[in-house]
Design a protein around this nucleic acid. Structure first.
Ligand SMILES: [Mn+2]
Ligand SMILES: [Mn+2]
Ligand SMILES: [Zn+2]
Ligand SMILES: [Zn+2]
Lengths: 140, 140
DNA sequence: TGTTAGTTAGCACGACTTGTTGATTAGCAG
DNA sequence: CTGCTAATCAACAAGTCGTGCTAACTAACA
């Protein structure tokens, strides 16, 4: 994702108004590695701006997603997570606590075999599931 | 997934009754590479057994899933898909028509880098997204 | 044959997300 | 500064996917 300042400029270019709500969300996403859901982002936002609506958070996230500034990650476990990291990267997910971390796989592009003649791969998503160090420690 | 005959035996062992509905679903899943949703499986089932309920299809799929006989695949695009192929395999998905095919990746286990000290990987899921040959042909 | 699990219809609910409406606020171009 | 208009908000509804529940009926299996 671009910096909050650059996003302000891009929003102005696109004819979108630069509201305090949008700017707050830009800042909350900047450098955010928590892979938050709309709901969790809303909760943090509401602390700094009581009265902001969940609807607006969803709306702004959709705009950023449409602009390619955030990625949305559906891990199949409840709500979609949003990711300001749009580098070519992948994720490890703890099945116990749900924490998501970025990982980088250098063997990509991967080679695969199967009955898929002529299939043009545009993107590859890898999710490693397991148990994080903290959860392993607690359960021991 | 085991054969329908073996599943009949396993269900009896577990104290589950072997109903015509369950047997029909066993047969519909046997060798099925379509990665159907509960809904699409229900539609096919209802042709052969009018009156079967969607509820029962969901129920039986849950039982098979709990037994490890089918895998459920959440591609983040609508309903969960069910897969009687429980081998270690991955998927290619056409973004246009939604078709899902099995693929096998032989570089697994994959090596990754990131801030994930002590994370124990239990499973790896890879999804290749792109455009299938048919869709490429149609759009050309 | 009897017990009991399974099935069904029907309705509701829950989670997540989007749509709508109508009133209010405020960004920003001129 | 002013005015146009987008944005926000509250409130409510709706849609999708999946599950829960009930009550009545059916049928598997001991
Ligand atoms: Mn990420
Ligand atoms: Mn498969
Ligand atoms: Zn954990
Ligand atoms: Zn296709």
């Amino acid at each position: 994702m671009k910096t909050p300042e650059e996003l302000v400029a891009r929003f102005r270019e696109q004819g979108y108004k630069v509201t305090p709500q949008r700017q707050l969300i830009f800042r909350l996403l900047d450098g955010n590695t928590a892979h938050p859901t709309a709901e969790t982002l809303y909760e943090v936002a509401a602390q700094q701006m009581p009265g902001i609506s969940l609807r607006t958070v969803y709306q702004t996230l959709s705009e950023l997603s449409a602009m390619g500034e955030v990625q949305h990650i559906d891990l199949g476990s409840g709500a979609v997570r949003f990711d300001p990291n749009v580098d070519d990267h992948h994720h490890v997910v703890c099945s116990t606590c749900g924490v998501v971390h970025d990982v980088y796989v250098n063997q990509t592009p991967l080679h695969f075999e199967g009955d898929v003649e002529g299939f043009a791969v545009h993107s590859t998503r890898i999710v490693f599931s397991g148990e994080c160090a903290q959860c392993a420690h607690l359960s021991a």
